[in-house]
């Protein structure tokens, strides 16, 4: 049972990591690529780590995996924010949507 759950978490996490990679290629400008990459950094990484934690059970290994996760969740927004701010200050213009045509829902 736990094995199935852990495998599901791992595969789902790997899928979301892939989505981030695809987004990095598909998105039109720098800022939108950041949004795609943050899928990798949050949900992808979180699910992979959760899957590994379920596999490891209540051991020191799980504690270390949780530390990796906490580190990622506390530090990566800071790096993203610094990156976006530096880009804006250096004059990288975001491509914005036109006001008139309404956003299509996916």
């Amino acid at each position: 049972m736990i094995d199935v759950l852990s495998a599901a978490c791992l595969l789902a996490g790997a899928f979301f990591c892939l989505v981030g990679g695809i987004g990095l290629i598909r998105m039109p400008d720098f800022y939108t690529r950041m949004h795609a990459a943050s899928v990798t950094e949050t949900l992808g990484a979180g699910l992979v780590l959760l899957g590994l934690m379920l596999e490891a059970g209540p051991t020191l290994i799980s504690v270390k995996l949780a530390m990796v996760g906490l580190l990622l969740f506390f530090a990566s927004p800071t790096a993203s924010h610094a990156l976006a701010r530096a880009a804006l200050l250096r004059g990288v213009k975001p491509e914005l949507a036109d006001e008139e045509n309404p956003s299509s829902k996916p």
């Binding site: 990095l24 720098f30 950041m34 990459a37 990798t40 950094e41 990484a45 990622l72 990156l83």
Partner: peptide, 18 residues
């Protein structure tokens, strides 16, 4: 831009960690 490359490097780092 250099920021695209940095973002890519950041993603590579996260993936390498995982």
């Amino acid at each position: 831009t250099v920021f695209d490359r940095l973002q890519a490097a950041n993603t590579v780092g996260t993936c390498a960690m995982l």
